[in-house]
């Protein structure tokens, strides 16, 4: 007997009786995501293009967004704030990430816990801490007044500065993690080799570590930017009425002005800002990958 066994028949009979099961297992997740994510998103997008009374398609809401200066200002404020957060997170996170990537002492565990523990505390606690520190009658102003260095409180809260400080604190652990992963990927022998060739500490950092950790720097900036742009609680509490960003403006549109189409347009603008940033990230990553594969292909 030379049975013609085609690839098509499954080797296990038991498996055949189970083939419907994976689909059944997947369907609840897909259902939940369709009803509570895809459908609402679709409706929101639809609403941003719909005339409120006549339900006819329109671009009025978008026109309003671009002509009324407040919205555009909010958009730019959000972008500026996110950029500043991205920069400060990366700059502040770098020394910590370098230490975590290179240290082999037991202090590493301590620093690691210190760097990441705030993440467990939640945003409110940390923002509350910054409120106490930055308020007009807060920690810093109190200290400076007490020492007689200033005569009236410095405006440290309810402005861009406060929000950037608060958000940097919120996002910092994520920046540190992505920088750390990148620096860990750099062979420490490269640094030793450079030192043996006579490079100073500074030269090693400038010519070896920094250039090779560019991917980590980029991803830290991207993560920080997107997290900052979509943050709500920190700008709401530390920025208040004095510093409004898209997130807080959307909230106002929905709950105070009850202008849903306009809220949708603002949400869309925020979403597009995020998608644009992620797109930049994806493009950068794929460019880097293809360059890497070309160079390694050349070696072979």
């Amino acid at each position: 007997m030379n049975s013609l066994a085609l690839d098509l028949h499954p080797p296990a009979r038991r498996r055949r009786t189970l083939t419907w099961f994976p689909f059944a297992a997947l369907s609840p997740s897909l259902l939940v995501l369709s009803v509570f994510f895809a459908l609402p998103m679709g409706m929101m997008i639809g609403m941003s293009f719909t005339q409120t009374e006549t339900f006819s398609p329109t671009l009025d809401h978008y026109q309003r967004f671009f002509t009324d200066g407040l919205s555009i200002a909010g958009f730019c404020r959000t972008a500026l704030m996110s950029l500043l957060v991205a920069i400060s997170v990366t700059v502040l996170g770098y020394p910590v990430a370098y230490f975590l990537a290179r240290s082999t002492t037991r202090w590493r565990a301590v620093v690691f816990a210190l760097a990441l523990a705030p993440e467990l505390a939640g945003v409110v606690l940390r923002t509350y801490g910054w409120l106490i520190i930055l308020e007009d009658r807060g920690f810093i102003n109190d200290l400076l007044l007490h020492l007689g260095l200033i005569s009236s409180p410095l405006p440290l809260s309810k402005n861009l500065f406060a929000v950037v400080v608060g958000l940097t604190h919120v996002v910092l652990p994520f920046g540190i993690l992505s920088l750390m992963t990148s620096i860990q990927g750099i062979d420490p022998n490269l640094e030793r080799a450079a030192q043996m060739l006579g490079a100073s500490r500074l030269a090693v950092i400038r010519t070896i570590v920094l250039p090779l950790s560019v991917p980590g720097i980029v991803s830290s900036m991207l993560i920080a930017f997107t997290m900052a742009a979509s943050a709500y609680a920190t700008p709401a509490l530390l920025g208040g009425a004095g510093f409004k960003v898209l997130a807080t403006m959307i909230y106002e549109q929905v709950l105070f002005y009850i202008d849903w189409p306009f809220a949708s347009v603002m949400a869309m603008s925020l979403l597009l800002m995020m998608l644009a940033i992620s797109f930049v990230g994806v493009r950068y990553e794929s460019r880097r990958r293809s360059r890497a594969s070309v160079s390694s292909g050349g070696e072979r």
Binding site: M41, M44, T226, S264, L275
Partner: peptide, 21 residues
């Protein structure tokens, strides 16, 4: 990618979408 797609939408936007819906 479908299952992970909500990750690329800011929470505040998801929130608006759900409340409008």
């Amino acid at each position: 990618s479908c299952l992970l797609s909500p990750l690329s939408v800011p929470q505040i936007v998801k929130g608006v979408a759900v409340v409008l819906f």
